[in-house]
Amino acid sequence: MSNAITRDEVAKVARLARLILSDAELDLFTEQLGQVLEHAADMNSLDLADVVATAHPFGLTNVVREDVVIASLDRDAVLAMAPDARDHRFAVPRILGEAP
């Protein structure tokens, strides 16, 4: 059994990711994620303090478009793919809390 990640941490991550895990899945994921994270320990043994992080392979900068309006999608077509729509809007069950 790996201890790179605990079952409680897996449960917390599931909540953050909006996934519901059964007890069995929690056990399995704790084990499997632990293995991947343990494999990643090879990185953590390195001293990379002076290495710059690369988020992107090529350093493009200032990619912009001109401020020009282009046609939007047809509303009916877009709402037709929605699981639920009313009054030309996307309908959702009640929202429990305010946005951050």
Binding site: L19, P83, I95
Partner: peptide, 23 residues
């Protein structure tokens, strides 16, 4: 997340709906 397209598994509130849908 079940709001705009694709699968939705209905639930009483939006957070539970998102969880049920993604699960």
């Amino acid at each position: 997340d079940g709001v705009r397209y694709g699968l939705r598994v209905n639930a009483v509130d939006v957070t539970t709906m998102m969880e049920a849908t993604r699960t």
